[in-house]
Simulated assay, not measured.
Amino acid sequence: MMAGMQTLALLPWPDLLAMAWFLAAWVGYAWYSRRASVHGATLLATTNRYRRYWMLQATSRDPRVLDGIIVQSLSSSPSFFASATIIIIGGLLALLGTTDKAAEFVREIPFATRTSMLVFELKMLVLIGIFVYAFFRFTWSIRQYTFGALLLGSLPAPEEFAAGKFDRERFANRAGTLVGMAAETFNDGVRAYYFAFAAIAWFFSPLALAVGAALVVAVLYGREFHSQVLHVLRD
C-alpha cells in the first residue's frame, strides 16, 4: 500500500488529472447507464423486455430444447471473451517483465510523452487491472447463464401452468431477470475492453488518455441510448 502511494506521488500532475478523469468517466457512465436502465431508456433494458417475453413463451413450450440451445449460444460470447482476456493478461505480464524494451519502443514514437520507468510500469499495471476486472465479469456472466439454464430446466410442464398450479408470470419474470443479469454482467466486461483502449492511449500522453476516455463514453452512449438497433427494438 505504501509503495503504491509513493508511486502515485511520483506521477506528474497531468497524469494524475488524466487518470482521475478516466476513472470518473468509467464509474460515472456505468452509474448513469445502470440508473437509466431502471427507466427502460437503454438498449439493455429494452432487450430485457424481450428476454421476459422469451421466458414467457418458454413456459408454454414442451420440450424446451430450443430455449436451452439459445442459453448455450448466449453463454458462448462471455466464454470466448474470458479465454481471450486470459491470453491478453498473460501477454501483458510477459511485457511487464521487459518494460525497458517496451518503454524504449514507446519513446521512439514522435508524439509520445517521455516518462520514467516507474510511471511506465504503473501504466502497465493499470492496463492489467482493467483486463483482470473484465475477466471476472465475463466468468461471472458465464455462471449466471448457467443458473439461467438451471432455472429454465426447472420450469414446470405447460399443463401445470394451464391448470393454475404455478404462476406463469412469476416464473417468466424470475428467469428473464436472471438472464438479463447475465447480459448486464457481460456488458460490464465489454465496457472494460472499450476503456482499455483509452488506457492504451495513456502511453502516448495524459491528454490522449483524457480524450480517449471521453470518446469511449461518447461511443458507448450512442450505442446504448441512440443506436439504430435500439430504435428497431422499440418500434
Rank of each mutant, 00 (worst) to 15 (best):
M1I: 07
M1H: 13
M2K: 06
T7Q: 13
A9S: 07
L11E: 12
P12K: 10
P14A: 03
A20I: 00
A25I: 09
A25Q: 15
Y29C: 05
W31T: 06
S33Q: 10
S33K: 03
A36N: 13
A36L: 15
V38E: 14
T42F: 02
L43Y: 06
L43R: 11
L44A: 12
Y50L: 11
R51G: 04
Q57C: 09
T59F: 01
R61V: 00
V65S: 12
L66W: 10
G68S: 05
G68C: 02
I69V: 15
I70K: 08
I70S: 04
L74K: 01
S75D: 01
S75C: 11
P78M: 03
S79K: 12
F81M: 14
A82G: 07
A82D: 06
A84R: 08
T85F: 01
I86L: 15
I88Q: 12
I89N: 06
I89D: 05
G91H: 10
E104Y: 07
I109F: 10
P110Y: 03
F111Q: 10
R114G: 02
L118P: 00
L118S: 11
L118G: 00
F120G: 09
E121M: 01
K123R: 15
V132H: 04
F135G: 09
R137E: 14
F138C: 03
W140G: 07
T146M: 02
A149F: 01
L151P: 00
L152K: 04
E160Y: 03
D167Y: 05
R168C: 00
F171H: 15
N173R: 14
A175K: 08
G176M: 07
A182G: 15
A183D: 13
N187H: 13
G189S: 11
G189T: 12
R191I: 15
R191T: 15
A192F: 12
Y193Q: 04
A199L: 14
I200V: 14
A201W: 10
W202S: 09
F203G: 01
F203C: 12
P206I: 05
A210M: 11
V217E: 09
A218L: 15
G222T: 02
G222W: 07
F225L: 14
S227H: 02
V229K: 14
